[in-house]
């Protein structure tokens, strides 16, 4: 990673309340090119609302969202967004699910299929192109969902607890797999999680959020070397960072 990285996305002093309940209280975030940033906070702290604002699905009461220095506040269709649920369409084969964003943009089905075909290998789904989602395991469905997410926008990807619904072993494998895939793609990622280990293992930086209303408590740089292997979670440095985070939370 280069020492100077371009700013991909910045969220400037956003506020949001629903009715009387303040959900987001002056949150500012930054995402640089090729960076992996996590938002770590307790459940129900408004992390998903922040994502909805970045994705343009919700307008903030105050504050702005800039993507590559352009104002994208309240405008959807720029960044890709993946949820905890895979949200694959059960009536479409995996290849058509992955091609969905292209079809929405107006590409013909046949062309879209051609365009996504090449990515099945990278995402470890070779041979499953013409299966239906129910024929895949949970982990594979998440991979397919990530692939679809990637097909929509290749540079900025929001991941909202994508592995939250998986069992611990599969989750660990998927995290490792994600790092591996990302090393082949030029993507900037914001990742929501309430799992401290996960945040440290995956991220370059972690924003720690407070309980509702969400505020950025602090920002922590994760200086563990990359590429990270599974063993990294048992190193003293890892535990040091973890201790810090627990103290802040």
């Amino acid at each position: 990673m280069s020492t100077y990285q371009k700013n991909k996305l910045s969220v400037n002093n956003i506020y949001k309340s629903f009715g009387d309940i303040s959900v987001i209280d002056d949150v500012s975030l930054e995402l640089k090119e090729n960076e992996f940033v996590s938002l770590l906070g307790p459940s129900g702290s408004g992390k998903s609302t922040i994502f909805n604002i970045i994705a343009g699905l919700i307008k903030p009461d105050k504050g702005k969202v800039y993507i590559e220095d352009m104002d994208f506040t309240g405008r959807s269709g720029r960044v890709s967004y993946m949820y905890q649920k895979d949200l694959l369409l059960p009536w479409k084969k995996i290849i058509d699910n992955a091609a969905l964003p292209l079809v929405i943009k107006g590409t013909k089905k046949k062309e879209a299929r051609e365009m996504v075909k090449g990515y099945f290998k990278i995402f470890g789904l070779e041979g499953f192109e013409y299966k239906y989602p129910f024929q895949l395991s949970g982990g594979m469905r998440q991979r397919a969902a990530l692939m679809r997410t990637y097909m929509f926008s290749k540079d900025i990807i929001l991941l909202d607890e994508p592995f939250g619904g998986l069992d611990a072993i599969t989750k660990r494998r998927m995290q490792y797999w994600l790092l591996d895939v990302l090393s082949n793609l030029n993507a900037s990622i914001i990742f929501i999680t309430h799992d401290i280990d996960e945040a440290i293992f995956l991220s370059d930086r972690v924003y720690i959020l407070s309980d509702r209303p969400a505020r950025v408590k602090t920002e922590i740089k994760i200086d563990l070397p990359r590429p990270r292997k599974n063993q990294v979670i048992t190193t003293p440095r890892f535990n040091e960072i973890k201790k810090d985070i627990i103290n802040i939370l």
Binding site: S76, G77, L89, P101
Partner: peptide, 18 residues
């Protein structure tokens, strides 16, 4: 129909008809 699914479609810029 799952609200998140509809949100996902919206986030991809799908029109109401789509």
């Amino acid at each position: 129909v799952d609200k998140d699914l509809i949100n996902l479609m919206k986030s991809m810029g799908a029109s109401k008809i789509k």
